[in-house]
Design a protein around this nucleic acid. Structure first.
Lengths: 193, 193
DNA sequence: GTGAAATTCTAGCACCGCTAGACCTTCTGT
DNA sequence: ACAGAAGGTCTAGCGGTGCTAGAATTTCAC
């Protein structure tokens, strides 16, 4: 048995190595630079081993995305814990969300922009993803007012954050006014229904 | 002279042919299907003629995007003209925006998602683009309240719309609740500052 | 009609994601 | 201890991509 478990452990380690290499390469040079050849060279194996771990490049991106969800969820939770009051909470969580997107743009792309076949608004969605949404939900709920649909309101607020960061990152919105736009979004959502 | 002008006219016609073919192919099968070979076959010329008109594939997408800006601006203007009252105007324009994004997803991608090197929030931006933003601005201004920064508020509202449509189109938000989310967004922005 | 100029095409480069089949290592049964 | 089976990894290659150099063709000016 022990020899088999060692094999399995080594294999799991190599899988993590692939994910980490893909993530670091993407963060350093963007996803366009993450080619299967390049990635194989990075982990010092040949291309086909990638396909013995993942179905294809998209599956590797999806694995990276799942790591990102966990990191985002942790960041949001931390931000929420650091403040009190509904308005402050919304501002802290919204700020943490956009800060994450700006700090880890490639990671954010894999999570929320690239067409990677991950289930989202279903129970089958990755736990880390559901947790990240839960953090947003807990920040939005106190300011939901009489809407009676905190889930939908959270989705809408999330869309606002997502729009801000994606439009900014693609050069469609100027960077320098980001904080002011975020403040406007928060004011509109914290104002009550 | 007349022979030269005929040449120039024919050349302009062929350029438009390229743009139209690219757009139709993208709308029918997505941008992944728009390869330079496929596009060349569509216009019944060889690949290199594409490069005598455009610097590369991105430039073709940019040209398609500019057409899209004009169409979007027209749609928003029409929607705004059909109603009266600030809340109704915002709902009409927001609805027209998301309807456009859902009706012409590939076009919308070229305009607002793909990294195409078009200037946005500057005077050098395409006229049609500035006009489309102007339509949004005229819809948001009446509900701006005391914010005193209608430009930034419009950008923020735009981000909300953009987030809704992109997250929905990538399967991150379920389609069926779109109208309710849009209504929530509108309510938050029409509520006054 | 002929040489010059402009235009279009053929052919190919370097790269992409992905995979079949050869190769080598490791384990198993006698 | 050793032959054969099983498993893992590699080399080499497929069909595709965006893009371009240089040949071939057409059109022009004289």
């Amino acid at each position: 048995m022990t020899i088999r478990t060692r094999r399995e452990r080594e294999r799991a380690e190599r899988e993590q190595l692939i994910i980490t290499a893909a993530r670091e390469l993407a963060e350093a040079e963007g996803w366009d630079a993450v080619t299967t050849r390049r990635l194989a060279a990075e982990i010092e194996y040949s291309q086909p081993v990638l396909y013995s771990h993942f179905k294809g490049k998209d599956a590797i991106m999806a694995a990276v995305a799942v790591e990102g969800f966990a990191e985002l969820a942790a960041g949001l939770r931390e931000a929420r814990a650091a403040v009190t009051g509904p308005r402050e909470t919304l501002a802290a969580v919204g700020g943490a969300y956009t800060a994450f997107a700006r700090r880890r743009p490639a990671l954010y792309d894999a999570m929320f922009t690239h067409h990677v076949g991950l289930p989202f608004a279903t129970p089958e969605a990755p736990a880390a993803l559901r947790e990240a949404f839960g953090e947003l939900l807990r920040a939005v709920e106190p300011v939901a007012g009489a809407d009676g649909a905190p889930d939908l309101l959270t989705e809408t607020y999330w869309a606002g954050l997502h729009g801000l960061v994606t439009l900014m990152r693609s050069g469609r919105l100027p960077e320098e006014a980001h904080e002011r736009r975020l403040a406007l979004l928060n004011a509109r959502f914290a104002g009550g229904g």
